[in-house]
Amino acid sequence: MLLNVENLHAEVAEGGQPILKGLNLQVEPGEVHAIMGPNGAGKSTLSSVLAGRDDYEVTDGSAQFDGEDLLEMDPEERARKGVFLAFQYPVEIPGVSNKLFMQTAVNAVREERGQAPLDMFDFDEYAQSKMSTLNMRPDLLERSVNVGFSGGEKKRNDMYQMALLEPKLCIMDETDSGLDIDALKVVAKGVNALRSPERSFLVVTHYQRLLDYIKPDVVHVLYDGKIVKSGGFELVEKLENEGYDQIIQSHETGQ
């Protein structure tokens, strides 16, 4: 199993408000899981906790990644071992060029894998080779990280980073939000190009459209800090037609 989350409880580090309340999630290598759920359910929190953001404190439960205790690791260590988070809101870093940023990141991951670092020229070549699948404008690489990028360009840049780092687990937090139809296809194409028997995806989304393109193996509904329902692709269609009310109601009466 690539990711095994059991009974995960997490709260806001400052204030102690509980957000994840006993979450279970198992992802096998090569699988694509979609996570849906109403606003405020805890989807971004789950993504952040898995990536290691210290705004949240895990109070109970466990998360194993590739057989190791994920929660013990610093965020950079998780990234080096193959966890990638595409942010709901990618962050701007003024003055740091996208290229230098990504060269540093790629070499950090290479170091972890026991590979020699790429120098400027090798990195340039590598960066070029990954650019075409995502229709990345080459000048975005020369600019400061996400500064002055449009919303769609930021998301695309995150996808591009994901392609460069070749992670094992890709967590995509609402990567499809704010994308136009063409950009959405590009992102879906990028994801599909990265799919492999070893690589898994956790795709957080509110909409069916992206999932139409990437066909998840499992669909989960996250509500009030827990996975309340899991199923196949048919669950997406059901939600699209009926909304969350029924699932939430049956979950709450079932309790």
């Binding site: 210290d54 950079e76 990234a79 870093i93 940023f101 950090a108």
Partner: peptide, 13 residues
């Protein structure tokens, strides 16, 4: 957020 973003790309704190 900037530091976490970099860390999430494998860059040390």
């Amino acid at each position: 957020n900037q530091i976490f973003y970099a860390q999430a790309r494998g860059i040390k704190h």
